[in-house]
């Protein structure tokens, strides 16, 4: 895949604000997932959450993204509770869950257009370029149901190239990608943090040599 030129200049995101979890605890069906967990995410961080299945990685990711309000403790962005400044926060972070939100009867281009409709500054040409970058050139007008799972995943990941947000929160983004796709995504992550962006990610995939990488390990509580 060809690297995207727009991410070359460093420090694209000059005013990223810290995302801080203060003493968050979460319980599901009488089972404690984590307790009094504090986490600070700063500009240029690449943080990978690791741990066994059921350790609460996705839950932590979702509550950092502001999608889950069912927990104790607080998550702050810009020194303010994210639920209180949610609309500003939502514009600054991109969340891609393991459900890709792809509509199968629509084409990759139509899907992408829907994804970026909250960001009016994104231009149509950017969408075509992004699809070309994820090697889907020529597939722009093919309904997604005719694409493979990996190709559908790439449609979802094409958002990384077009959404102008400093914070990426990605839940298992490597699922269904082939070797080439994995390399491309790793490259994108490295570029994003090098450009001053921030990534919070869960993955069972071992990320290779990105200097900024930090691990947060979630264990199994009883």
């Amino acid at each position: 895949m060809t690297p995207s030129a727009s991410l070359e200049q460093s420090n694209r995101f000059t005013h990223f604000c810290d995302l801080i979890a203060h003493n968050v605890s979460c319980e599901r069906d009488d089972r404690i997932l984590f307790e009094n967990l504090s986490l600070t995410v700063q500009k240029g961080d690449l943080i990978q959450l690791v741990g066994p299945n059921g350790a609460g990685k996705t839950t932590l990711l979702r509550l950092m993204a502001g999608l889950n309000q069912d927990f104790q403790g607080e998550v702050h962005w810009h020194g303010e509770n994210i639920q209180r400044c949610y609309q500003d926060y939502a514009r600054q972070r991109l969340y891609i869950g393991h459900l890709s939100a792809i509509k199968k009867v629509l084409t990759p281009l139509e899907n992408l257009r829907w994804f970026v409709s909250s960001w009016p500054e994104v231009k149509e040409a950017d969408l075509w370029q992004a699809l070309a970058d994820v090697t889907l050139a020529g597939y722009e007008d093919v309904p997604c149901q005719q694409l493979s799972a990996g190709q559908q995943r790439r449609v979802a990941l094409a958002r990384l190239l077009v959404t102008p947000t400093p914070l990426w929160i990605l839940d298992e983004p490597f699922t269904a990608l082939d070797k080439e796709g994995v390399a491309w995504l790793e490259d994108q992550l490295a570029r994003h943090v090098a450009a001053g962006g921030t990534v919070l990610i869960t993955s069972h995939h071992a990320l290779s040599d990105i200097p900024a990488l930090r691990y947060i390990e979630l264990g199994m509580h009883k």
């Binding site: 949610y86 869950g97 939100a101 994804f115």
Partner: peptide
């Protein structure tokens, strides 16, 4: 139903709209 199952709903909430 479809929006819940394919993650569209999640993206709505994530969008802050």
């Amino acid at each position: 139903k479809a929006d819940v199952e394919d993650g569209t709903l999640e993206q709505w909430l994530a969008s802050g709209e």
